[in-house]
């Protein structure tokens, strides 16, 4: 049963990802990306990481993608502005490199499975899905990186304002 659901989600995910890169208009491409994000949330839920699944929907499918769409509409993008020749070459290169990388990944994961990477088999511990466990990790083991993000956000705000504001005439 679980396997069947996984296969359905996986197919939907790949289908959505292909749509993201093949659709011509930027808006539909972004909508396809929202779809992919939701499906990935489903995959998280399937392995029992309910909290991560919820975050995936709220943060990625929700907040981030709304920003994406907002910016696309702000910039008023219509068609990709790449010449035909360029497009052919990059598309060819992309397909070749992408396929090569896919096989590499498949090979690596397969070898790892055959040799028995213990961590790969371990199912997600039931406790991981709870908010309490994640937050206590965040405030104990990962306290420093967690606090560091506040510095990062401050820098991002200052930088964005600096680049966006007009020079005040004196």
């Amino acid at each position: 049963m679980q396997l069947a659901i996984f296969i359905i989600f996986a197919i939907l995910c790949i289908f959505g990802s292909i749509l993201v890169i093949t659709l011509r208009s930027a808006v539909s491409s972004a909508i396809a990306l929202v779809f992919v994000m939701c499906v990935i949330a489903g995959l998280f839920a399937l392995v029992g990481a309910l909290f991560v699944a919820a975050l995936q929907v709220i943060v990625y499918a929700g907040a981030v993608m709304v920003l994406f769409l907002f910016i696309i509409m702000l910039l008023n993008l219509k068609e990709e502005l790449i010449s035909e020749d360029d497009k052919k070459f990059t598309r060819f290169l992309g397909i070749v490199l992408g396929t090569a990388f896919l096989f590499e990944l498949a090979f690596f994961v397969r070898t790892a499975l055959m040799r028995g990477s213990e961590a790969l088999y371990e199912p997600v511990p039931k406790t991981l899905s709870s908010i309490a466990v994640i937050s206590s990790e965040l405030f104990t083991k990962f306290l420093f990186p967690f606090e560091l993000t506040s510095v990062l956000l401050l820098i991002a705000i200052v930088g964005a304002i600096l680049l966006a504001k007009k020079k005040n005439e004196k």
Binding site: P145, L152, A156, L162
Partner: peptide
């Protein structure tokens, strides 16, 4: 001494550099 900290350190270093 840990990968996530290293990643955040890298971002804190790079973000100002872009600006």
């Amino acid at each position: 001494n840990e990968l996530i900290t290293a990643f955040l350190g890298l971002e804190v270093m790079s973000l100002p550099l872009y600006v």
